[in-house]
Write a protein that binds this DNA or RNA. Structure first.
Lengths: 195, 195
DNA sequence: TGTTATGCAATGCAGTCGTATTGCATAGTG
DNA sequence: CACTATGCAATACGACTGCATTGCATAACA
């Protein structure tokens, strides 16, 4: 059999180019030829590794997700064993937020994909992460009686991400809002009925 | 001079069709001919009322925003004069969330536009609402000492909206998260709840 | 009633799209 | 060495895009 090429590597190379195009010019600018040019390869090669455009999009989407999970995992691992719940939660949330350039680029792409998949139910379950699991994870880190706020924490994070991406909040504002929220969650309060 | 036609009405008619297409098939499916077909008019007429596609997009975007503001305004006005801060805040937030079908459609379109304008700085300032003013508005409704949580409230709302649109949270979950957050913010006060 | 600016439809054009097809160089196998 | 599956490039094709242009009916004004 002929040439041996690392398929996955080639596909990732192309997916990276796709994400660069999407981050800079939006998902509508993503075409086979455009991606090929960005990747510095021929359009034929893109076709060779992805039989259809949707297949390419799907693969790129999976790369985005994996990259995000990897970033979060590394940030958390950097905390060492048995970190304090609040610190762990904050690290997790901050790792998801698009704070540095790389994160911003990924965030732009993720946002584009979100709008993209909002219309294509086929690829949706891939992006529709195990949010329920995330909610449980967050709930486990909150003080007792605050379990009901877990979903809100994730929503706050997502919203902060959007405001960051659209440039309406600065990094400082977003982190301040995040910390203010954590203050609220981890502060001792008297609630009227059960909290 | 010839026929007298309500320009704004025609443009709105076309923009409505555009939003229907965008809500159902995404913004990439928005083309002059497609929108014209959806509106039940000729492609030439669309061209007649919008000299360029970008002009049409911009107008549709402004319609989305106006519609949203109108919905919020009406919901707030329905409260009557001098509503309690928490009720006013909750009403405002719930009015922004995509809870009914109409809101969901508008939300889809808004999301598509968000990703769209994320790449086109020209139209961005139009969508980049006076968020700062909103933050101030929210801050004025929060109990004293909670001003720093205003930005977080907006982010939470935005995030809940996204989770609602992507189907990751149900209405009940989103409203529960919203109320749990309000409970936290208004911890000393009467907790309200309604469907 | 004639004039004319306007509303609107139809067509054409250059460009891009996704994809199917074809051709070929080549590296690994027998 | 001969063979062949594979990597990859190139091209063709029909559909679609935004936009410019053209033509014409008509309603308001002179």
């Amino acid at each position: 059999m002929p040439k041996k090429v690392d398929h996955h590597e080639r596909r990732t190379l192309i997916a990276d180019a796709l994400m660069r195009v999407a981050a800079e010019q939006g998902l509508e600018a993503v075409s086979l030829r455009h991606v090929a040019a960005e990747a510095g390869v021929s359009a034929g090669m893109v076709q060779h590794y992805f039989r259809t455009k949707d297949e390419m999009m799907g693969f790129a989407l999976s790369v985005v997700r994996e990259r995000g999970q990897k970033r979060v995992g590394e940030a958390v691992a950097r905390l060492g064993p048995d970190p304090a719940p609040r610190l762990l939660l904050r690290t997790f949330l901050a790792a998801v937020l698009p704070l540095d350039d790389a994160g911003r680029e990924d965030g732009r792409v993720a946002l584009a994909f979100l709008a993209y998949t909002a219309v294509r139910p086929a690829t949706e379950p891939s992006l529709r992460t195990d949010t329920a699991q995330l909610v449980e994870f967050v709930a486990g880190l909150l003080p007792r009686g605050r379990n009901e706020n877990a979903a809100g924490v994730l929503a706050l994070m997502e919203g902060l991400g959007m405001y960051l991406l659209s440039g309406q909040y600065t990094q400082q504002q977003a982190l301040a809002a995040l910390d203010a929220h954590l203050d609220l969650l981890f502060s001792r309060q008297v609630s009227a009925s059960d909290g």
